[in-house]
Nucleic acid binder design. Structure first.
Lengths: 137, 137
DNA sequence: TCCAATTACTACTACTAGGTAGAATTTAAA
DNA sequence: TTTAAATTCTACCTAGTAGTAGTAATTGGA
């Protein structure tokens, strides 16, 4: 009952970048150190975030990354979608493939409330909302 | 954001057994067919459920499985615990290891409500509560 | 007593997520 | 123009989850 590691890293990376927009560019090395994410794994994730158009990369010396959109435009759910980790409408807690009103799993009714709540939180929370909250990790 | 396959299977198996207590014993073959779970994988799970003392097995011809405790005594959370899949108190949505009031992750506050709700549902839902709900899968 | 139906055990394979290594490419500064 | 700092690409390794195969052990019934 957790997000996968890559999604967690991606959210933390983007929130960190959003929280440091006074700096023009942040390098992979700086992000890796600050967020305690293995450097090589982080660079792999960065490439995906660039392709997904959340961030812009500047190659070469003095290069780095910065947000491509405004922080309020990027929702947590958008990030989860890139890593196939968002909560699907028909998602069933017991994994049966067609859990709905007609034929529902044993936990269907109980599961609706937390599921909708999580969907709502992910869809409504933008980087702007979460950047600067709590610790800087 | 999902339970692992084994936990899902285990819950469905136990709910099914609870829902068929009029039958003295249910065989692995019957469960495998009824619940559409690969036979060999199911037998492996059954062995774990026996060791965890949720069910009793009768070996040999005419053997099978039945609940070892009453359905109201077995909570969903007890099952999740066997497969290391229950929601821990300190569990953090962004995976940082020490997310609490002092040093909390960017999504800590939003995450509290659905997390507590899920914990509550898992801890309070017994097999008796869920058996017989919805479809028989 | 023997057989067939059943659970239990041991070991293996397949797939995927997480992570690492090394070299290629780009670019600003010296 | 050379070099060093940076991203990108390709390929691989590792560990854990899911699932399979074969056989041993148990036991009721013919």
């Amino acid at each position: 009952m957790k997000l996968n590691n890559t999604s967690q890293y991606a959210i933390r990376i983007l929130a960190y970048i959003a929280d440091h927009k006074e700096k023009k560019l942040l390098s992979a090395a700086e992000l890796s150190t600050a967020l305690v994410i293995p450097y090589k794994f982080l660079t792999k994730i960065m490439t995906e975030l660039v392709k997904a158009d959340f961030i812009k990369s500047i190659r070469g010396r003095e290069g780095g990354f910065k947000l491509q959109k405004s922080a309020s435009e990027i929702k947590v759910d958008d990030i989860l979608n890139v890593f196939n980790d968002s909560i699907k409408e028909e998602e069933c807690i017991l994994g049966i493939g067609f859990c709905n009103g007609m034929c529902k799993c044993a936990l269907h009714d109980q599961w609706m409330e937390p599921k909708l709540l999580m969907q709502k939180i992910f869809q409504e929370s933008s980087l702007e909302d979460i950047a600067g909250r709590g610790c800087k990790i």
